[in-house]
Every structure is written in structure tokens, then in C-alpha cells.
Amino acid sequence: MLATAAAAIALIFLQQAPAEDIDWDAEFGVEERERDPATGEFPVDPYEKSNANAGAEPFANGRLAAAFGGREGIRRIAERTVELSEADPRIAEIFVAHDTVRLKRTLSEQFCYLLGAGCDYTGRDMRATHDGLGIRTADLNALVENLQQAMREAGVPFAAQNRLLSKLAPMSGDVVER
């Protein structure tokens, strides 16, 4: 036992230190991503933009949007939902490697479009955006609770909150992977 440990320690010291001028990113093929200076978002692979990617038909008139404080109110609710989720120990891990600058914008667009507030949704579809995230229904519940808190803080009436959720809940099949 002791001899093995001594041998291991000796091996560690016998190793040669690597040269100082090695570009490790190049060695391992790491590509550095840079945020767009104008939007603050990381670039994404090209895809076809369409409101159909929002995953549901919007409410026909803008009455509901007023209950959310219009476009500006909707944007704040979407951003707050993402912030609450990033700080939520149940689901924070899912957002660690995520471009939340872009997520806040696309989520806001999606809500705005679905609520009939006159935005276009420019993000990818729900299956593509959640692919590989390993999301469970319990994670979805945590996100719903954070969205509910954001809407509650914004003074959105409960029935109106449920109207938005009624557009989102049917998308669970494209989001939940396990």
C-alpha cells in the first residue's frame, strides 16, 4: 500500500512540465464563441424563421395582451421568468450553458406573439430549442411556477395567467425528453 503510494508520487514528480507556449484551445479544437457586439447574443447556426416555430396559434385579439401590460410588460415577465429560473436550484443547471440573453429575447417574442400583442417569433421551434437538455416534467413544473411568480409580481389576473399557460402546456411533448 505504502509502496504503491510512494511510486505514484514519484511518477507525478518525474513527469515533464509541458511547454509554456502551447495553444491548448487549438490542441483540443476549442472554438471561441464571441457575443455579437450589437445584440450581446452568441451566434447560432442558420435556420428558417417562422411564427409557426412559436408552437401555437396566437390569441385573435390583443385584449389579453393588455392584462400583461402590453409588449413592455410581456418582455419584463419573460426576462423575470428566466432570471428566477437561473436562480432556482431545481433547474438552474439547465440554464448554465445557455445563452440567456438570446433566451430572454426569444421567450419574450414567443409570449408576445402568442398573446396577440403583434410580435413575430424569430426563435427556433420547441423541439429544436429543447433538444438534448434532458428535461423532465418536474423541471417543466418548476419553470411554470417561476412564470406564475413573474406574472403574479406583474399583477396579471390569474385567469389571464392560465390563458397563456393554455398555449404553452400542450407543447410539453416537444420539451420533455425523459
Partner: peptide, 8 residues
Amino acid sequence: GDVVYGDP
């Protein structure tokens, strides 16, 4: 089915 999610 699911009481909340999926096909409405």
C-alpha cells in the same frame, strides 16, 4: 394523459 400537459 396528463391533467395539465399534452393535448388539451
